[in-house]
Nucleic acid binder design. Structure first.
Lengths: 100, 100
DNA sequence: TTGACATATTGAAGAGTATCGATATAATAT
DNA sequence: ATATTATATCGATACTCTTCAATATGTCAA
């Protein structure tokens, strides 16, 4: 069940920032507006928008406009693909069970 | 079977570079000297040493001195841990089978 | 201990990135 | 149309990182 292969460098760069990982954690299982994320992170709104754009470009968040707001949520499937690809490339002898 | 938890930001930063991923791929399943890596990457020796240090600090390579040479190899187990931790944090609803 | 080889460290230049104030764009309501 | 709210973009600053030449350190052989 192979999908389109992930660019592991782009994937790693996208998640290689503390602020971005905070944002990712916050909107992992929720659909949140930009302002919601601003409130929960104490990061300025332009900074949040900037990080969301990076995550979006990497395919790691989905977004939809609802009226004035734009709601974002983490694309867990794509996250899983990225992790898989990294593990396949760099841990081929250590296949790993991610299920808890 | 939980080990010491991985700092996912440090992990992501360590692998978030094209040159480093080249090095990681090259010494994934082999024990290579710094010069071997230099030859296979066309990257200057100080640059290779620099990247190896970053990977070492993150625990992603092991090294042992053999005479004049220092041999490096990717720590696949730690790579797998890093991938697991990222997936657990950011793809909790998408448990993933990494086994081919 | 001298010379040769292998790797690590230093120092500097350039590229890239994070951050945020100011401002522009978008959507809605009055 | 105008005001209000929400988000995106711009521009500047500061910081971090990559890269490599030069040099230092470490190892071994003669």
């Amino acid at each position: 069940m192979k999908q389109k292969p992930v660019d592991t460098v782009e994937f790693a760069k996208a998640i290689a920032d503390e602020t971005r990982q905070k944002i990712m954690a916050i909107c992992c299982c929720e659909l949140l507006s930009v302002n919601d994320i601003v409130d929960k992170t104490n990061v300025a709104q332009p900074t949040v928008s900037h990080h969301l754009k990076i995550l979006k470009t990497a395919g790691l968040v989905r977004s939809e406009r609802h009226g004035k707001q734009v709601l974002y949520t983490l694309n867990q499937e794509r996250m899983a693909e990225g992790c898989c690809q990294v593990a396949e490339n760099f841990a081929p002898e250590h296949p790993v069970e991610l299920v808890d």
